[in-house]
Nucleic acid binder design. Structure first.
Lengths: 158, 158
DNA sequence: TTTGATGCAAATGGTTTGCATCGGG
DNA sequence: CCCGATGCAAACCATTTGCATCAAA
């Protein structure tokens, strides 16, 4: 039987799926994200991972599933400017202002996550100054990761 | 004769164009960005603006020109997640740490620029903690602009 | 059983590329 | 003149959609 190793109870997940069917394909996609918590997977990557596991899922279904899981608040969609959308699991303790940022290495393409937020004060400043109601933000740093600084970027996609 | 109303002297621009030809098409694209300093133009928008002016430029040429101008450091490429790349003029007083951020309205799609940076301390923290050499960043805030908060988003693309 | 989900293939839309022609330096 | 630039059309690639079939509840 399929085991759902998420902090969140399966019943809660099912609750979020109220109007939607928990099909094997959707379970597999969730499973893939749970097994790749530190990854930022594109649709194509989810597709490749699905065929490496039990069952291959149609690419169209993957796209539709990713869209659904994002709407259900289980995934976050991110754009790193590499021409494809990527998704990451939304942490359980996620709240309006508990965000993390991404360090994108320009050499190996690796993506690190950092916890520091420090954007509260800036958001407050902006909301007051421009009367702009902020509901989300996106902060990415581009540069060179420690490994690529050392070996001069011998390998790609590390 | 074509006048280059950029703060930067034309001679400097030509210097940056050393290996490249300053063709009418490239001049027109530059001109369009100079006349839309507060805009964040997509290739398609530059194309439309080019046909509204003197001469229409082929879309392929626009893409190639945008790529060139970015490589020359005259334009910045930005991705707001709307499925197309956008470009903005790089300000003359641009320096490593003089960045601005974007407020993207989720209703009308309007884009405001804000001057506040306040990212220095965060960058220093990250560079020290993760040994990641930051060369650029990308900060976008998504939410509701003041006008859309008022009229409930009656109109689009304001 | 019924309605939503799947999968395939075709359509879409932004972007890139091959190639013959053009023209700036 | 020569080599890089242009323009057109075709190719590309990520993503979406139409539709017949399938299966979860």
């Amino acid at each position: 039987m399929w085991c759902f190793p998420l902090e969140k109870k399966l019943s809660e997940i099912k609750e979020q799926f109220k109007e939607h069917r928990l099909t094997p394909q959707r379970r597999l996609v969730l499973e893939i994200f749970l097994e790749n918590r530190d990854g930022h997977l594109s649709a194509e990557e989810v597709y490749q991972l699905s065929r490496e596991k039990k069952g291959e899922i149609g690419l169209a279904t993957i796209y539709r599933t990713l869209e659904l899981l994002e709407a259900l608040g289980l995934l976050h969609k991110i754009n790193f400017g590499d021409g494809r959308s990527r998704y990451e699991l939304v942490p359980v303790d996620y709240s309006e202002h508990h965000h993390h940022h991404h360090l994108v290495c320009l050499v190996c393409g690796g993506i690190l996550e950092v916890e520091e937020d420090l954007l509260h004060q800036l958001e407050e400043l902006i909301e007051a100054k421009h009367n702009f109601c902020i509901v989300n933000h996106n902060l990415q740093f581009f540069g060179y990761c420690s490994r690529c600084q050392q070996d001069g970027g011998k390998d790609k996609q590390g």
